[in-house]
C-alpha cells in the first residue's frame, strides 16, 4: 500500500485560557507520616516534600474535578455552553470504567460538549493536552476544550510524596494568555511492561487466581527490576534530552531562549537534575512551591505554572518548557506566557 500524508487544516493559535485547581481541605506534615512509618532520615530527606494533601471521603475524584473545573471556567471567563470537548485524564476514577467527563457535563451544564476519558498515569495528561490542541487545530467546530485531571494518590506507595487534588486546564482557539507552541514525545514501547498487576485482568482473572493483597492496588504491583535498571533508568535523562531537542527543532526555539522550567513534582532536586541534563541548570523553576504540594498527576506542571504566575515568577512573554514522563513515555511541551 502506498503511504501518503493526510491533507492538513491550517493550524490555528491555541492557548491555555485558564487553569483551575482544587486542593483537599486537610494536609499532613510528611515528617509526622515518616515517623509513623519509621522512614530512615536519608530516605525522608530525599523525598523533598514537607506537606501533602489528604482527601476525605467526600473528596472523590469527581468532587474535586467539579471544583477545579468551575475555577477554570471562571479563570478563563468561559461560558459552560462554549465547551466543545471535555477530556478527563484519570488514573483512578470514582468507579472503574465510568465516564467522569459525562458526569461533569451534566453537573456543569456543558450542553454542547463531546466527552472522552484518556486512561493512564502521568503521561496521559500530557497526551490529553496534545489531543485537545489537535482537536482545535483539526476542526472548525471545536474551539474550546477542557482537560481535567483528578487523583486521590495519598497513601499509595508510601514512602512517597503522593498527594491528592484536581487540575482543570481550558484550551481555547486564539487565546493569548498562554500560547501553546509545541509538543514532542518519546514513547518507549519496548519496555512498557516493566510494572504491572498480575491478577484481575483477562490474562489471569481473579476466578482463576484469587490473589489480592491488602485494600488497594499498590501492594499488588510487580516490577521487573532488571528491565528497569538495564533498559529504562540508564536512559531517563537521555530521553529528556531527546524530547527537548525534538521540540526545539520543531518550534525553531533555541534552548537559551527558555525563561522558565516546570516538570512533575518528584523528589528533591529532580527539576535541577533534569535542567542540568538538558543544558539549562540556571533557568528559573517552580521548586519553591512543590514542598507544600506533593505529586498529583501529569498535571503537576499546571499547578506550578499557575502558582508561579500568581506570585510574579513568570512574566509576560516568558517561554516555559514543561518536561515530564509517565511510565515509559517522555514528553515535552512549550508554552509562551
Amino acid at each position: 500500500m502506498k503511504i501518503e500524508n493526510c491533507p492538513k487544516q491550517q493550524r490555528t493559535h491555541v492557548g491555555i485560557a485558564g487553569i483551575g485547581l482544587y486542593f483537599p481541605e486537610k494536609t499532613v506534615d510528611t515528617r509526622v507520616e515518616a515517623k509513623i512509618h519509621k522512614l530512615p532520615e536519608n530516605v525522608y530527606k530525599n523525598i523533598g516534600i514537607d506537606r501533602i494533601y489528604v482527601p476525605n471521603q467526600k473528596e472523590q475524584p469527581s468532587y474535586m474535578a467539579y471544583h477545579s473545573s468551575k475555577e477554570a471556567l471562571l479563570d478563563s471567563d468561559t461560558d459552560p455552553e462554549d465547551i466543545d470537548l471535555i477530556i478527563v485524564s484519570c488514573f483512578k476514577n470514582d468507579f472503574y470504567h465510568w465516564a467522569m467527563s459525562d458526569w461533569l457535563c451534566d453537573r456543569l451544564g456543558f450542553k454542547n460538549a463531546l466527552t472522552i476519558e484518556i486512561k493512564g498515569g502521568c503521561g496521559a495528561f500530557y497526551q490529553a493536552i496534545e489531543f485537545g490542541v489537535n482537536q482545535i487545530n483539526g476542526s472548525k467546530n471545536i474551539k474550546t476544550v477542557m482537560v481535567v485531571s483528578s487523583e486521590r494518590l495519598f497513601g499509595y506507595g508510601w514512602p512517597s510524596f503522593m498527594s491528592a487534588g484536581s487540575q482543570a486546564v481550558i484550551l481555547k482557539e486564539n487565546s493569548d494568555k498562554y500560547e501553546f507552541l509545541g509538543f514532542s514525545t518519546y514513547n518507549y514501547l519496548k519496555y512498557h511492561a516493566m510494572a504491572y498487576i498480575p491478577y484481575g485482568g483477562t490474562a489471569q482473572p481473579f476466578q482463576k487466581s484469587p490473589e489480592w493483597k491488602g485494600e488497594d492496588f499498590t501492594s499488588n504491583v510487580v516490577v521487573d527490576r532488571d528491565m528497569y535498571f538495564d533498559h529504562i533508568k540508564p536512559y531517563v535523562f537521555d530521553n529528556f534530552r531527546y524530547v527537548t531537542k525534538q521540540l526545539l527543532d520543531k518550534t525553531g526555539v533555541n534552548i537559551e531562549e527558555i525563561d522558565f522550567f516546570v516538570t512533575l513534582i518528584q523528589q528533591d532536586n529532580f527539576e535541577k537534575r533534569v535542567q542540568t541534563s538538558i543544558g539549562i541548570p540556571e533557568v528559573k523553576n517552580a521548586a519553591e512551591f512543590k514542598r507544600k504540594l506533593g505529586h498529583f498527576s501529569g498535571a503537576d506542571p499546571y499547578v506550578l505554572i499557575k502558582l508561579s504566575q500568581e506570585s510574579g515568577l513568570i512574566k509576560k512573554g516568558d517561554l516555559i518548557l514543561n518536561i515530564g514522563l509517565g511510565g515509559v513515555a517522555w514528553y515535552a511541551t512549550l508554552i509562551r506566557y
Binding site: I116, I118, Y188
Partner: peptide, 11 residues
C-alpha cells in the same frame, strides 16, 4: 520507540 502515539480511551 520514538514519536509514536498510543492511547487507551474510554467512552
Amino acid at each position: 520507540c520514538g514519536n509514536i502515539y498510543t492511547y487507551d480511551f474510554f467512552r
